[in-house]
Write a protein that binds this DNA or RNA. Structure first.
Lengths: 74, 74
DNA sequence: CCACATTTGTCCGTATGTATC
DNA sequence: AGATACATACGGACAAATGTG
């Protein structure tokens, strides 16, 4: 057995936890993708996948030229 | 205004429709990623993103070495 | 057991488009 | 005009699992 999780999953889990436990509130801006890349020590791809996942979950929304923001809970 | 949709969205929509309207049934195997690439005339990336999305939606499941299969509806 | 082909999953680097400031 | 930032796409690479010989 293995406890391995891909980078994008760890990033998504970490950000999701920050959102659900209130460290990130609706309307808050997430770090930029470049910053997330540096924070997690990966390339752009895992960051993209993590944000893609959280978008699909309806937790965040990206706004071109502005940033990525936490959405209101449905 | 524009009706543009990215490739991965078109692929995901097409496959999702095939699943929900019964052309693809639970247990059925989807075309391989290589085949999907050729079918939709894209590179691997949009195909990956489409399957990633449908996986997140719980519609399909990938099995390494075997293929991608339609799941039972929950 | 080993070699090989197939297939899914993940990651890297790079480039382009679009929108904002 | 330039910098910043998100979104999408291309090409290439390697790991893991499966099946066949």
């Amino acid at each position: 057995m293995s406890t391995y999780k891909p980078d994008y999953q760890r990033i998504a889990d970490d950000l999701r936890e920050q959102i659900t436990d209130g460290r990130l509130s609706p309307g808050d801006k997430l770090p930029s993708k470049r910053e997330l890349r540096d924070i997690y020590g990966t390339s752009a791809q895992p960051v993209e996948a993590a944000l893609f996942l959280l978008r699909a979950e309806g937790l965040i929304e990206g706004r071109q030229g502005k940033g990525t923001f936490v959405l209101e809970r449905e």
